[in-house]
């Protein structure tokens, strides 16, 4: 009896029809992502190619007379807004995830997790509307206070002639709105990973006399590190590519590179710039916009690649 079942078990799985169909489907799904990516890349390259070297009038002349000068402030703005969003969202989401997985009683944890997940379902246009109609005006007094008291730091310097953006549509506002949009993504992934930390590790740490925070530091975080980075990367991807909310909230300066968080004009992002200028664009201008899309595509790739590299190196160091 046992012999026959063992025999059946050793049969190679791929011989079964169901398995073969499934592995074929899985392969097709994997390949289709590659095909889609290649397709998008090819589109950006072919349609954007002429946008890389156009007459100065297609860029932002006289401030930017060639593609590099046109795209650099946009790259800067994209990264800057995303960095602001992550600086706010990452500690907050990890904190929320920890509360849900380790601190809060289950009765409380489940509804909190549910509400955070709901945030992810709110469309970005709604965040944009809320941003310009409610949030940005409400932040003006806070910005004024920051400018008055921290104005000696260039970040909070405000406008040249004094004062801050009178309607609050600054890159800080955009960053905070982005942070709220990124929050549910990072929270739900890190929460799942924290919850998967082996019980034994945690109990061992507690048995050695660790406090709960020490247990989290020495048992949960090392175990979850790569998952946390993945979560942050997904959040970063959303922040880099977010379009409507930024386009609506930000008071975008033309070809402007500034770290100023509170001024009238801020550097805008690639995605928001495409959304704002595509509609009325002539063919030449549209080619330029598509070329900036290509830059965003490459930028996202590079950022992801670098992050993976850093994680891989850190992992090697800890295991050694």
């Amino acid at each position: 009896m046992t012999a026959t079942t063992a025999e059946k078990m050793t049969e190679t799985p791929s011989n079964r029809l169901g398995d073969r169909i499934f592995s074929g489907l899985a392969l097709a799904a994997g390949l289709s992502i590659l095909v889609a990516l290649t397709g998008v890349f090819a589109f950006l390259l072919i349609r954007g190619w002429q946008g890389l070297s156009q007459d100065a009038s297609f860029y932002d002349a006289p401030r930017a007379n060639d593609f590099l000068h046109y795209v650099w402030p946009l790259v800067f703005g994209t990264v800057y807004a995303a960095v602001i969003a992550l600086v706010i969202a990452v500690p907050l989401s990890i904190g929320i995830a920890l509360v849900i997985s380790h601190y809060a009683p289950r009765r409380l944890a489940t509804p909190i997790a549910y509400v955070i997940d709901l945030l992810a379902a709110v469309p970005s246009v709604v965040f944009g509307l809320w941003g310009i109609l409610v949030f940005a005006p409400a932040m003006v007094p806070t910005y004024g206070w920051l400018d008055d008291h921290l104005g000696f730091i260039p970040l909070f310097a405000g406008n040249e002639g004094g004062g801050v953006n009178p309607v609050g549509r600054t890159i800080l506002t955009a960053g905070i709105v982005l942070a709220i949009m990124v929050l549910p993504i990072i929270t739900s992934i890190t929460r799942e990973i924290f919850a998967q930390t082996p019980r034994l590790h945690q109990e061992a740490a507690l048995a050695l006399g660790a406090t709960r925070w020490e247990m989290i530091r020495y048992a949960v975080f090392p175990y979850a590190r790569s998952g946390m980075v993945s979560a942050v990367m997904l959040g970063l991807g959303r922040a880099l590519g977010e379009t409507m909310a930024v386009a609506m909230v930000l008071s975008a300066g033309k070809s402007l590179v500034t770290f100023n968080l509170l001024g009238n004009e801020s550097s805008t992002t690639i995605a928001a710039n495409i959304a704002s200028n595509y509609k009325e664009g002539t063919p030449g201008k549209v080619a330029v916009l598509i070329a900036t899309g290509l830059v965003l595509f490459v930028l996202t790739f590079v950022v992801n690649f670098l992050a993976r590299l850093i994680v891989a190196r850190a992992e090697r160091n800890t295991t050694r």
């Binding site: 009178p166 309607v167 609050g168 549509r169 008071s251 975008a252 300066g253 033309k254 004009e265 704002s276």
Partner: peptide, 18 residues
């Protein structure tokens, strides 16, 4: 350069109002 920028007609109207 300078001044506020707002997206769309309704964006300008909202900025002036606020």
């Amino acid at each position: 350069k300078g001044g506020l920028a707002a997206e769309g007609t309704s964006g300008v109207v909202a900025a002036v109002t606020n």
